[in-house]
């Protein structure tokens, strides 16, 4: 075939398979020799590859999000998350104890009744939070997606 003869449909199909890495190994050497001789064929293979790169670059897959999800679902990430929650809970308990000590100590300038109001409000907040969590756990069996773990 002459170097500038228009490509047949069979040539175009082979160019696509070559660009996709789907040409049988036995045909690759011969086809690459043709690419070296025929600029139109070489241009077609290059165009097919560019189209594939375009589609890959503009895919709905959000690479950053996928990488984040993969990191978060690893065992190490789960263990670290658990450690974080435990440390946070321990910190809240210590902080509450310290606050109680400071507010009710003889050196405190906050009136005692105000200290108790503050603590009761905080306990109320924790109680409401606990109720919300319990309600979620109690109704979990009604969640249509409960069997799916993402």
């Amino acid at each position: 075939m002459s170097a500038l003869q228009p490509l047949s449909e069979a040539d175009l199909m082979q160019a696509m398979r070559h660009a996709d890495g789907e040409l049988p190994a036995s045909e690759v050497a011969e086809f690459e020799a043709r690419i070296a001789r025929e600029p139109l064929l070489a241009a077609e293979v290059a165009a097919q590859r560019r189209l594939a790169v375009m589609a890959r670059n503009w895919s709905p897959r959000d690479a950053a999000l996928e990488a984040w999800e993969a990191r978060e679902s690893s065992t190490l990430a789960r263990v670290l998350r658990l450690v974080g929650i435990v440390v946070l809970c321990a910190g809240v308990v210590v902080l509450l104890g310290f606050m109680h000590f400071v507010l009710t100590s003889e050196y405190s300038r906050v009136p005692l009744w105000m200290a108790y109001v503050f603590e009761v409000a905080l306990v109320g907040f924790v109680y409401l939070l606990w109720r919300a969590v319990r309600a979620r756990l109690a109704t979990r069996h009604l969640d249509p997606y409960r069997d799916l773990e993402r």
């Binding site: 709905p60 897959r61 996928e66 069997d147 799916l148 773990e149 993402r150």
Partner: peptide
Amino acid sequence: DRDAFGRLASQLEPRGRTFARA
């Protein structure tokens, strides 16, 4: 085995979302 299905779902989900989005 729910855990196995969970792992399967987590691998299929991004593929499905990509396809369905298109």
